[in-house]
Simulated scan of single mutants.
Amino acid sequence: MQPTSKIYVAGHTGLVGSNILRRLKGEGFNNLVTRTSKELDLKNQQAVEDFFKAEQPEYVFMAAARVGGIMANSTFPAEFIYDNLSVQINVIHQSYVNGVKKLLFLGSSCIYPKFAPQPMKEEYLLSGPLEPTNEPYAVAKIAGIIMCQSYNRQYSTNFISVMPTNLYGPGDNFDLETSHVLPALIRKFHEAKVNGELSVTVWGTGIPRREFLHVEDLAQACTFLMSDYDENEIVNVGVGSDISILELAHMIKEIVEYDGEIIFDDTKPDGMARKLLDVSRINQMGWNPVYSLYDGIKSTYKWYVEKYGK
């Protein structure tokens, strides 16, 4: 990509898209195309076709998606599969039709098989059954990856797929109905501290382990891969280490400076027992994350308090 290359960031108002956009601006790219969901409904085939014909982007970062935690996936399975399939099909196909030079598609570590060996290598995709709580989302994302690979084989396109681990950072979704575990815990502990509550309840047993990547690290990885990677295989992006939900809860409790008790509600689902990515492929290319988990959560909590705190 050149500084003047026309780059479309789909989903630029979301956590990932907004950070990719900020990263591109910081690296000197000045011909950036964006549309809000009100301006362009990516589920609308004709609207997406018209947009690509009019704008003719050279590069596409496909960061638009419906995402959420266990509760959101369990409550809205139809929306998770329909919305993601519709958006992906339209953007990927129109990128091919309009001669986009390169597209980066974002998958997710949660689409690996439920019982995949840990850490999860890229070749483990489609090697076993999925986690039931997020199966509709996973099926949609897997379809997007296969679509990119199929277009590459048949049409010689350059559509790459990235598999980030659990993300967090400033701009995250803190809605307790739809958020992922880390931002949900930040909000729960902060509100308990402000309201003088004696305890905070955390879903599940606390035993599952998760890997967390700061979204600014992912944005840097995406621009790195867009510049330096042209293969058909997917690429994991993570930190290569994980933490139990129990340890995470205590870390966030310390950062928030909450003095109450933590109660784990084991009647609620845990999700996958572990999700740790093997990141040797991207590390060998020369990329490594910058943020430690503690420092990343601390900066995210500071942002949350400035935006939402009392």
Rank of each mutant, 00 (worst) to 15 (best):
S74E: 14
A72R: 02
V194H: 00
F61T: 04
L167E: 10
G169E: 12
Y229W: 09
G69T: 06
N152Q: 11
V67M: 12
I234D: 03
A116W: 11
A47V: 06
L176T: 09
M285W: 03
V290F: 12
V97Y: 00
M251C: 03
D278F: 04
H214K: 10
Y258Q: 01
W287C: 02
C110N: 11
W303P: 11
P164C: 01
I262H: 01
L293A: 07
Y96G: 00
N195F: 02
P183G: 10
T205G: 08
E131P: 04
A116S: 15
K101N: 14
G128F: 09
Q284M: 12
F29N: 03
K6Q: 10
T178H: 12
G271K: 03
E49H: 12
L218V: 13
A219Q: 07
E197A: 07
F189S: 02
D41S: 13
Q88I: 13
E79Q: 15
G17F: 04
T300S: 15
L106Q: 12
N44G: 02
F159A: 01
V279S: 05
A138H: 07
R153N: 12
A72Y: 11
H93K: 11
G17L: 03
Y82S: 13
V16I: 15
K193N: 02
E257M: 10
I111G: 00
H250Y: 15
F80W: 07
F212N: 05
L176I: 12
Y304Q: 06
L213V: 11
D175K: 00
I234R: 09
M71A: 15
K275M: 14
V60G: 01
V239N: 06
D172I: 08
Y229K: 03
Y59V: 13
K25L: 15
N195Y: 03
I142G: 00
I70Q: 02
T165E: 07
E131M: 13
V235N: 07
P289G: 04
L218C: 08
S280L: 00
I297N: 05
N236V: 07
G128K: 07
Q94W: 06
L32Y: 06
G240C: 08
I146W: 00
I89L: 15
V237P: 09
K268N: 03
F189L: 05
D266W: 01
S156F: 09
D230H: 15
F76S: 12
I146E: 05
F29E: 01
I145D: 04
F105L: 03
V162E: 02
T34D: 04
A116H: 07
F80K: 03
T36H: 04
Y151R: 09
P289Y: 08
L104I: 15
S199Y: 14
P77K: 07
G11D: 03
I81G: 02
P170D: 11
V87N: 08
F212H: 08
L21D: 10
N152V: 09
A219F: 10
V60R: 01
R187V: 04
D83F: 12
C222G: 00
H180D: 14
R274V: 03
S299T: 15
I186C: 06
V60C: 00
E135R: 14
T133S: 14
D295Y: 11
Q56Y: 11
S199A: 15
L176K: 05
V91D: 09
K38N: 14
G171H: 08
R153M: 13
V194I: 13
R35D: 05
G99A: 02
L277Q: 07
Q284V: 00
G14T: 02
